[in-house]
Write a protein that binds this DNA or RNA. Structure first.
Lengths: 132, 132
DNA sequence: TAACAGTATGTAATAATATAACATTTATAA
DNA sequence: TTATAAATGTTATATTATTACATACTGTTA
């Protein structure tokens, strides 16, 4: 059973915007879009983003400085994430592949490090862009 | 046989600095360190960094906005990278694990995407920090 | 060697991304 | 209800990265 996180007002406004956009959004683009709802300052956006990332409702696409709604219903926290990114159209999807996530979650090497989290970004051309 | 890239003056200065540091360095920290060598502007640093990344001499740690010298002698381009990052001491190492790289380089799914590149970042606690 | 193309450099200005500091308010739970 | 944590509002500023434009160097090849 997934813990219900009651989003605060700003968190809800920002999550809904990202979720509805269907793709990654950048912080200042979010800011621009929510100004009519009373959110005026970058920090208000970043605070909501931080919290949403923390509880796994969104993920940060590190290579793009952008945020995307979690597309994996079972994802409670952002501790094991994988994305595919089209370098042509910049389309981003979250990869839900249990073999991949199992492989990476169980990965360990001789470094003595205890891994508790990973983020993987694949780059390439999506179906559409490939055929252009 | 690895192609010899003759680094330009700025590229060499900046690569040597990062390489000698033994860890990840941020762009403006690099800038500060090379000002005595005549490199005065951010753009000079970023241009060298871009080129060094392109030819695989350094990699960008996306989650940290930092750059690290390639620790894998066979790495000619930054197209298949994996790092382990200690969230306590911020130590970063490049992971050279042929099983892992084989697994990821051959990864494909039903999305129709053709993957040509990936970057993986593992997070956790290193040996030292674990035992504190 | 002259002309060309490609790469690299120098410099100033500015854009884009993110956080610090401080005051106040709202929600949660003991 | 009172204490605590979480969230908000606001201003200022720090950090990361790029645009635009002028100049110089390097390696080809005619």
């Amino acid at each position: 059973m997934q813990k219900e996180h009651n989003l605060s007002k700003n968190q809800k406004i920002i999550f809904d915007l990202i979720d509805k956009s269907g793709g990654p959004m950048k912080a200042y683009s979010i800011l621009f879009n929510v100004q009519k709802k009373g959110i005026k300052a970058p920090l208000q956006v970043y605070r909501a983003l931080d919290k949403l990332v923390e509880i796994g409702k969104i993920h940060k696409i590190e290579s793009r400085n952008a945020f995307i709604a979690c597309q994996n219903s079972s994802c409670q926290v952002s501790k094991a994430t994988a994305f595919s990114i089209c370098e042509s159209c910049e389309n981003v999807s979250e990869i839900s592949n249990s073999k991949l996530s199992k492989y990476l979650s169980n990965f360990s090497d001789s470094s003595g490090m205890k891994y508790s989290k990973y983020n993987l970004e694949f780059f390439g051309l999506c179906k559409k862009c490939k055929s252009k």
